[in-house]
Amino acid sequence: MRPSHKSATLLVLIPLILLAPVFFPSSFYYRVGALIFINGLAVTGMVILIGYAGQISLGHAGFAGIGAYSCALMPVHWGIPPVLAAVFGAVISALLAWLVGRPILRLKGYYLAVATLGFGILVYMVLTNETWLTGGPDGMNVADSGLRDLAKSLGINMKNSEFWYWLCAIVMVAGVWLAMNLQDSPTGRALRAVHGSEVAARTVGVDVARYKLQAFVISAVYASVAGSMVALQNEFVTPDVSGYMHSIEWVTMTVLGGAGSVLGAIFGAAILTLLPQVLTAFAEYEQLLLGLIMMLVMIFMPDGLLPSIMRRIRGKDE
């Protein structure tokens, strides 16, 4: 019997995460791994929005900015511990997503893309210009989260990069697990119905606007937590974290790997996070190569890399 979609995803993901360090020649690769997991978390949220609900957001880095700066600002001004600040940041992101999404998602079509594009740029501008609060373009320090010391007191003593590799892995797997559960829930089925056809979904009694809004809010929380993880790991943030290109990167990762599957999107995140490290010798041509890969995938594998590869494998099996 074929294992369920949910357990299959986790069965692939968890051994990969556990085994990858065996191949690491130096602890630098833990850092790259942690970045893959952070991007993986964000694109898991994108799968809920793009793959399940069929909506596009071009401003999710804005939510990452809110998550990151919550971790930077709240400990300084209100004495809130950084980890708790990440939770508050997620709540703020959810509220903002709800405010932005509520009027927009009543409309059909790609209005959300335009609204979120504006939203993301707005967040970036506020973070850049309000120097008195955010330190401006030069960025600001983030207080030590104390998580590593906590791990030490529990007898787990690791190098910083190793510690963040495992922590980011745990957070991402938790995020994936939640997303898989959502997919199998009534909400997930309703979302897929909306994705298939809004009219058909409405005729069977699905509140289209409400489900689209839910998906948008959930994906904003994923992006916000990803932003918080960046801030906590780096202990330093600049407004770049909310930059427009990061939003585009996440959409690209999702679509490249396969927007319909969490595993595919994480695969896309892994490729696009690794690529700039592999291509340092061709840094000038990086954008060019990314564009080329994207075009080829869109033309020859419109479902994304992973689903297309899987279909080919299965096709041969039959």
């Binding site: 130096s26 630098f28 850092r31 970045l35 990069s161 330093f236 600049t238 770049d240 930059g243 490290q277």
Partner: peptide, 29 residues
């Protein structure tokens, strides 16, 4: 000029390339 990328490259220089000294950081962030 991206702080997050710079931090990744800094880690790479230290852990992977085993440099003895580093020049750089074009801007303050």
């Amino acid at each position: 000029g991206d702080a997050n990328k710079a931090k990744t490259f800094a880690t790479r220089l230290v852990e992977d390339d085993e440099v003895v000294a580093v020049i750089g950081g074009t801007t303050t962030g």
